[in-house]
């Protein structure tokens, strides 16, 4: 399973490295979203600073939808999906590989976005340990839930409109908990309770990784 996961993740990441869709389209889009938020809040510095954690995570969610769509668009071209099924790889491994590749892309994106938040909103990135831990745990949950819905949505050929509708309500707790944890870390909210929110994120990640490992078999079984 882990070997298959590494193979799939390596393949996806290689495709991303070579096509540079993530670097040239998704990351710039996420930064544009940050700029748009500044317009929406009239560039009110105090307000932006206060809202920065939430804006950061909303931008991550938007970018995640794009990354997940991209991750499955790659498979649907040239019958890649059928080849994956024919390869005899463990479906759980395929799931972990795809989710892992999405997670790596999202983590890189979060680095860019964090820099964007620090520069554009003059946000001081305070408690680095909490910030990084939140990003790691939240990203695992996001990537797992997104990969489950990605395979469901792309298979029906209406993924552009369907995936956000399916995914956004499910990952709403991630947005909420990650935002609260970041607020605690940046000192714009109640401090000291970041661990509690991290625990929620952890539960979410475990539930959706387990769900994906279990559900991916039936889902990829048939085109």
């Amino acid at each position: 399973m882990w070997h298959d996961a590494a193979l799939v993740a390596g393949k996806d990441l290689r495709i991303e490295l070579r096509s540079r869709v993530g670097a040239q389209q998704v990351a710039p889009f996420a930064l544009v979203v940050l700029v748009l938020f500044a317009f929406a809040f009239d560039a009110d510095h105090a307000l932006l600073l206060k809202a920065a954690p939430g804006l950061f995570w909303v931008a991550v969610l938007f970018a995640a939808v794009l990354s997940i769509q991209r991750s499955f668009a790659v498979e649907s071209a040239d019958g890649g999906r059928d080849r994956l099924r024919l390869s005899g790889m463990d479906p759980a491994g395929i799931f972990l590989g795809k989710a892992g590749a999405v997670a790596v892309q999202l983590l890189v994106l979060q680095l860019v976005l964090a820099a964007g938040v620090a520069i554009l909103y003059s946000s001081r990135l305070g408690d680095a340990a909490v910030l990084v831990a939140t990003c790691l745990v939240a990203t695992v949950g996001l990537a797992a839930a997104g990969t489950i819905y990605g395979v469901v949505a792309t298979a029906v050929g209406a993924s552009e409109t369907l995936l956000p509708l399916l995914l956004m309500p499910v990952v709403a707790p991630v947005l909420l908990c990650a935002t609260k944890a970041w607020q605690a870390a940046l000192g714009t909210g109640a401090t000291g309770d970041a661990l509690g929110w991290l625990r929620f994120l952890g539960v979410f990640a475990v539930v959706y990784v387990a769900a994906g490992v279990l559900a991916f078999g039936p889902l990829v079984e048939e085109g």
Binding site: A145, I148, Y149, V152, A155, V156, L166, P169, V170, A172, P173, F200, V203, F204, V207, Y208, A211, A215, P218, L219, E221, E222
Partner: peptide
């Protein structure tokens, strides 16, 4: 049937977390 069953369960599992 398969996809919607998975979607329903994923959605249902989300309710307590939410």
């Amino acid at each position: 049937a398969k996809r919607s069953a998975v979607v329903a369960l994923v959605a249902f599992a989300d309710v307590p977390i939410v």
